[in-house]
Amino acid sequence: MKIQEIASSVKGTILVCQDENADVEVAFASDLMSDALALIQKNHEKTILITGLCNSQSIRTAVMLDIKTILIVRNKQFNEEEIRLANESGLNVICTALTMFEACGKLYSLGLKNV
């Protein structure tokens, strides 16, 4: 799925777009970055990180794992510094008001797979 399709499916907005052609095939959802660092072990560049953790550490975690796209749930918003960091890091960031459960359900029904 392209990020525009993902944003539409979760009624979200694209906050940062550094690679609009990024292809997302698998997803991992957690507010704990330690779990993401331990459990995402393949298809890194095709993974979307779904999280309610809205601070620089979700961005840093994506960078370490070579993940290109983050979906922030529960209507949380990055501040200006975090948006700058996401842009510098070459990421895509989508924001949605949906809860993590709802966002995961939508994306699962559209064919995204588990990591």
Binding site: L32, S34, A38, Q57
Partner: peptide, 14 residues
Amino acid sequence: AREFGFGAGMGLPN
């Protein structure tokens, strides 16, 4: 630390 997304107890094993 947990509010920052860490403290799952996965660090050293990982």
